[in-house]
Simulated assay, not measured.
Amino acid sequence: MKYQIPDILAMSNAERKLLIEEDASPILQEMLIHIGHTDETIRDHQNLRLFLEFIQYDLLSLSDKQYLVSQLTQTSYFYFNIGEKDTDSIFQRALTALWLTYLIRSDAGQAFLTKNQFDEILGLSTRYLSKEKDTRGYIEGKGWAYGIANGADLELALIQNPKFDIHDAAPILQSIRDCFWKGTVYVDDEEERFVEIIEALIRKGIDEKLLIEWVEQVFDSLEYSKQSSGYSPLFLKARTQTLHFMKTFYFALKFRQIMPELQGVVSHFIGQWMKIR
Rank of each mutant, 00 (worst) to 15 (best):
38 T>L: 11
245 F>D: 02
138 Y>W: 07
66 Q>Y: 07
243 L>T: 01
230 G>T: 02
203 R>P: 00
270 I>E: 09
98 L>E: 09
259 M>H: 12
248 T>Y: 01
78 F>A: 08
135 T>K: 04
164 F>D: 05
33 I>F: 11
256 R>P: 10
162 P>S: 12
47 N>K: 06
219 F>Q: 00
60 L>T: 12
175 S>N: 06
276 I>H: 04
194 F>R: 01
238 A>C: 09
49 R>S: 14
160 Q>S: 14
4 Q>D: 14
236 L>R: 13
208 E>H: 07
39 D>P: 05
141 G>V: 06
31 M>Q: 07
226 K>A: 12
184 T>H: 10
94 A>R: 05
235 F>C: 01
173 L>D: 04
143 G>K: 02
144 W>K: 08
272 Q>S: 11
131 K>H: 15
188 D>R: 00
158 L>P: 09
211 L>W: 09
93 R>P: 13
221 S>R: 04
63 S>D: 15
258 I>M: 14
153 D>P: 10
60 L>G: 09
71 Q>I: 02
110 Q>Y: 13
277 R>N: 06
60 L>V: 13
182 K>A: 11
109 G>N: 15
16 R>D: 13
156 L>C: 02
265 V>F: 02
259 M>W: 09
29 Q>C: 05
143 G>R: 04
17 K>D: 14
13 N>G: 15
29 Q>E: 14
48 L>H: 15
41 T>Q: 11
180 F>A: 04
78 F>L: 15
256 R>H: 15
68 L>M: 12
105 R>Y: 04
173 L>C: 05
112 F>R: 08
234 L>P: 03
13 N>C: 03
